[in-house]
């Protein structure tokens, strides 16, 4: 909210736009009126440009921040795993063991089969999503503000408010569900499950429709739940941030707005700690449950 030319709408739009690097076709008229001579890979300078890049574009901020956070997770846990001892654990090992036991208990509680992939998958999901969600608690203007100062047009700090990130995970989980369904039940068994229940073989189209929806709802709901929660939370942070942005000199009204912003963002941030953890936990638990269903003969 430093630039005086920003309106509330622009502020919100700016905060909801990913930093997109993609291909613009030849003849495309840029945001600043320039017309491209050839196909160009470039950073989008307006939401419209980002949209017009279509599929051949990368959200640099989502990728970068999730990569950094993922590497942080890997680095921390690998460091502990290398020096792990069965004797008296040190501080970092204590923390990591606590997390691992928590995940292990969750997996043992929900997953009845035997699969060495599920627990590490759950751990990665939980920690990675938690850290990505946690970026939401960094004050809303810090990261985009620093980016603007550095000349970067957009920067969204929370990767999980980008559906690419949430769908990236949920579709990977979906592939795993398909893979293990076929592996455990055989192709015939899996197709049978999709087509022969709940109405028997004469209700085949209805069965297929119901079970197909059921199956596809898994990755979609998984991704959209996380995305929706984080996006909405981010949106509320933006709206709260706008209150103090209406500052125009010391008056009773302005002071009230300013105070409300501080109180509300504090309250919402504290509440958000719960949401951040809860969403990571829900994503993890549902992943375990879906994989468990994929491993079972009947459900």
């Amino acid at each position: 909210m430093s630039a005086e030319a920003h309106t509330s709408t622009e502020y919100i739009k700016h905060h909801l736009q990913n930093l997109t690097y993609g291909k613009l076709p030849a003849g495309y008229q840029r945001h600043d009126g320039e017309t491209l001579q050839a196909d160009t890979w470039t950073l989008a300078h307006s939401p419209q440009e980002a949209k017009d890049m279509g599929f051949s574009a990368f959200n640099v901020d989502t990728l970068g921040i999730s990569l950094v956070l993922g590497l942080l997770f890997i680095w921390l846990f690998r460091k502990v795993a290398k020096s792990v001892t069965a004797g008296i654990p040190g501080g970092a090992q204590n923390f990591v063991e606590w997390v691992i036991e928590f995940i292990d208990n969750s997996v043992k509680g929900s997953f009845t089969g035997r699969n060495p992939l599920v627990a590490p998958l759950a751990l990665t999901i939980f920690i990675w999503i938690f850290m990505m969600n946690f970026m939401d608690l960094v004050p809303i203007d810090w990261i985009p503000g620093v980016a603007t100062l550095l000349g970067v047009p957009y920067l969204k700090a929370v990767p999980t408010t980008d559906p690419n990130a949430t769908f990236g995970m949920s579709i990977t989980v979906f592939f795993l569900v398909l893979y293990y369904s076929v592996k455990m039940k055989g192709l015939g068994g899996f197709v049978g499950e999709l087509t022969l229940q709940p109405f028997g073989k004469f209700g085949l189209p209805a069965n297929f429709f119901l079970e197909g929806v059921n199956l596809l709802a898994k990755p979609v709901s998984l991704a959209l739940r996380l995305f929706g929660n984080m996006y909405a939370g981010e949106m509320i942070f933006i709206l709260i941030a706008l209150m103090g942005g209406a500052w125009a000199g010391a008056s009773i009204g302005n002071l009230t707005l300013f105070g409300s912003q501080i109180l509300l963002s504090l309250g919402w941030a504290i509440f958000h700690i719960l949401i951040v953890t809860l969403q990571a936990f829900i994503f993890m638990t549902l992943t375990i449950v879906y994989l468990d269903m994929a491993h079972q003969e009947h459900h």
Binding site: F55, A57, L67, I74, W128
Partner: peptide
């Protein structure tokens, strides 16, 4: 917008999970 980020995220996710399964989970 859904774009190629999706694919990159899937690959990144898979690599993290693989690394975790291979080098982090078992020793701990």
């Amino acid at each position: 917008n859904i774009n190629a980020t999706l694919i990159a995220q899937m690959i990144m996710f898979a690599i993290f999970v693989w690394f975790c399964m291979r080098f982090i989970w078992p020793p701990i």
